[in-house]
Design a binder for these strands. Structure first.
Lengths: 225, 225
DNA sequence: ACCTGAACACCGTTCAAGT
DNA sequence: ACCTGAACACCGTTCAAGT
């Protein structure tokens, strides 16, 4: 009998952009950014590396398409009505955070200005910010502040996942916290003091607290126009 | 007579980590992240690629060291006394922003958790945040929010520089603004409306306004503990 | 039209051989 | 001890040759 593989029914018919992107996401999730190569992808799709170029222009486009499949739902979720604007912002932000948490390589893609997901995120947040009654002149700044914060957290998460490829996340937090606690007390008094909070904090709560902080700032601006 | 080169006096004596890192910064500034290879670096230093490994462990360490030379002064500048805490935060943030503006490849390095410059930035900002009288429980969140925002802006600047390798910055802003203005009015009403602000905004002012927003949020938290 | 896989022009890194 | 540069084990991408 034929050996059972993890992908018994691949290639019953031809390649397609969708099939290629799905395989890319599978590799990215399992092996990280460095694991995605056209040779590895061709192996998984039971073909040669050249075949992929008939459906995808290059690696950059493949990464954009892969990011799209992960963030498509997250960046449009705020259209749910009946929420306070602040809660709608938090809902989108958290959806993006959770998507990056489950697929850390997405975090590194957010900085790509060709990434449609970033425009959708900007749009989703911007609408809520406008609905909050923020003055016209402060709309761009307010939306940018929220978007840049989300991008920054995403970038860090992606980098942390890269650094902790073989350990798990809490182990990494413990080791970073330990490193901070051992810093020179004269040069790094603040970071040392805060090392414990770093170890004990919940990433998700912490992320939301940051969003709240920026929303509070936006509220303060709105009140003195 | 011998031909004049751009580096007539290189290699009068041996290699050193400093010389290697300086050459790396020179290449990074002139040709961007992709331009830095060990072969290119060896050419500039009039040696072979293997020689570099006697002074630098690998490419990652080289990038960390290169980032250090650019951010060393920026991340410690806040020790200037006599400033309001808010102004001290803005001074450090702006120093980092200007460093990234002058050396866009630095922006992509900020997410690296092994980057000592990030710890120094966190420390510098954290001290000022503590001096602002922020409650102990909110110190980590407040400092993280500011740091993540700076990291996010840095990541975007790095990506924009990569995307605009052959055009200049204002040209890029114009083309992004045009792309935004042409988005589907039903799907992207907010982004379309804001496209003009995107084109006309001053990056530096915009960045500082975002810092002000987060500082306002921190102030609001402090007032209701 | 779609696929194949060898080939091209690169990488980062190693290491025997030189001085 | 330091340097050299060929060699190794890869990349992304192209393209003649096949179906």
């Amino acid at each position: 009998m034929p050996p059972r593989t993890r992908h018994p029914r691949r290639r019953i018919d031809g390649l397609s952009p969708e099939r290629i992107v799905d395989a890319a996401v599978e590799i990215l999730d399992a092996e990280g950014e460095d694991g995605l190569t056209f040779r590895r992808l061709a192996d998984l799709l039971v073909t040669g590396p050249g075949a992929i170029y008939h459906h995808v222009a290059n690696k950059g486009e493949l990464l954009v398409a892969a990011t799209e499949t992960i963030l498509a739902s997250a960046t449009t979720v705020a259209n749910v009505d009946g929420l306070r604007e602040e809660d709608a912002v938090k809902t989108v932000a958290l959806a993006v955070f959770d998507a990056i948490d489950a697929h850390p390589w997405v975090g590194a893609q957010l900085a790509n200005p060709l990434q449609p997901a970033m425009v959708r995120l900007f749009e989703s947040i911007g609408r809520q910010v406008r609905a909050l009654g923020v003055p016209e002149a402060a709309l761009f700044t307010s939306t940018s502040a929220l978007t840049n914060y989300i991008l920054g957290v995403g970038g860090l998460n992606a980098a942390n996942a890269r650094a902790a490829e073989n350990t798990n996340r809490t182990e990494l937090l413990v080791s970073v916290s330990a490193a901070w606690a051992n810093l020179d007390p004269d040069e790094y008094p603040f970071t040392r003091d805060v090392a414990k909070q770093m170890r004990e904090h919940d990433d998700r709560t912490q992320f939301l607290d940051g969003i709240d902080l920026i929303l509070a700032g936006i509220g303060a601006l709105g009140r003195r126009p």
